[in-house]
């Protein structure tokens, strides 16, 4: 596969456990050697079985963070963070800027004398990230680095890491099987199933338009729509999606201005012929039927309501409503059926 990743953006390598994500990451890092093929990064060839090229990890200028922080237990926080720095060239060091800036943005005291083994889980991950970024890598590789953390710590770290990568312009590959994490952190996504990359593309596309049934099953079937919170009142958020507005029940405090993904399952979308003024659903969107696909006794109706949205309805309902491509309908979605994932 080949992916364009803009400076400062994150490619998510997504897939169920055992899909081979970590193997791919280790091969990119140069820790494992593939049997055949090529690995290229920009103009650098890291592996080419035909040409007999193999760059060891030391020559790839990468940063690597595992699920476990793997800090050097005999060294202090400062020594851990500085560990790889003296091997980086001076030119690279100036390009990256002062090490203290990276450490500070990650909330690590760069001259901390405490032993690495005395840190909490969240602190240790921050130090591991600072250590990986300090020598100014051209690519950061993250193997489920936040998996073992509690939810608030994980959310904060995701945010800090995204902001820092953006600031440094460092590209990253993030391995995860957690769809929330993929949405919160990723820009591009590659979906892996059974050792093969099945789909590559911008993250919302991959979620909203899975290339085949296996990808859809691994991602969960639902629309994932880039959106922004515009207002909040009485536990109800107003979210702008394309040119439309959705009302969404506020589950976690989400201030206006937050970029989010709005996730809507096709089962939760109801189709009406005329708006019912007293129905409980908060959202009634004018829509046009684009296509109808038969999935056994269920029909999948693809709607265009300013954005693409699928609805699953029974064949009987479809017949009663006399739905056909081109029909003008109302898509009804309950405020509690829209699930928001804030972008880190």
């Amino acid at each position: 596969m080949s992916v364009d990743v803009a400076p400062g953006s994150i490619l998510v390598l997504f897939g169920p456990s055992g899909a081979g994500k970590t193997t791919v990451l280790r091969q990119i890092a140069g820790l494992d050697r593939p049997d055949a093929g090529t690995i290229r990064f920009g103009e650098h060839t890291w592996f080419d079985s035909a040409a007999g090229i193999w760059q060891p990890p030391q020559h790839r200028r990468i940063g690597l963070v595992f699920q476990e922080p793997a800090l050097f237990p005999h060294l202090s926080v400062e020594e851990n963070v500085r560990y790889g720095v003296r091997y980086a060239s001076d030119r690279r060091r100036t390009r990256v800027g002062p090490l203290s800036e990276i450490a500070t943005m990650l909330g690590v005291d760069p001259i901390e004398k405490r032993s690495a083994r005395r840190l909490s889980g969240g602190e240790a991950r921050r130090v591991a990230l600072a250590r990986a970024l300090a020598p100014g890598p051209q690519l950061l590789l993250l193997d489920e680095p936040f998996a073992a953390l509690d939810a608030p710590t994980r959310t904060r770290l995701r945010h800090d890491v995204r902001a820092l990568l953006h600031r440094l312009g460092t590209r990253a590959v993030l391995v995860t099987h957690d769809r929330t994490e993929a949405m919160a952190m990723g820009d591009e996504m590659a979906v892996m199933i059974d050792g093969r990359v099945r789909q590559v593309g911008p993250i919302a596309d991959a979620f909203s338009h899975p290339s085949d049934a296996a990808v859809a099953a691994s991602l969960g079937v639902e629309a994932v729509l880039p959106a922004r919170v515009t207002a909040s009142s009485g536990g109800l958020l107003t979210v702008a999606v394309a040119q439309m507005e959705l009302h969404v029940a506020e589950r976690e405090p989400t201030p206006p201005g937050t970029d989010v993904y709005a996730c809507i399952r096709a089962e939760d979308v109801t189709i009406e012929r005329a708006s019912h003024p007293r129905a409980s659903a908060r959202n009634h969107l004018p829509a046009r039927v684009v296509a109808i696909a038969h999935e056994g006794p269920i029909d999948r109706v693809t709607l265009d309501c300013g954005f693409k949205l699928d609805a699953l309805i029974t064949r009987q309902s479809r017949e009663e409503l006399e739905l056909a491509p081109g029909a003008e309908v109302i898509a009804a979605i309950k405020a509690t059926s829209v699930h928001l994932v804030p972008r880190a």
Binding site: Q58, F72, Y83, Y87
Partner: peptide, 9 residues
Amino acid sequence: EASWSLGVS
């Protein structure tokens, strides 16, 4: 592996 990836022989 962490050490190798940091450029250390």
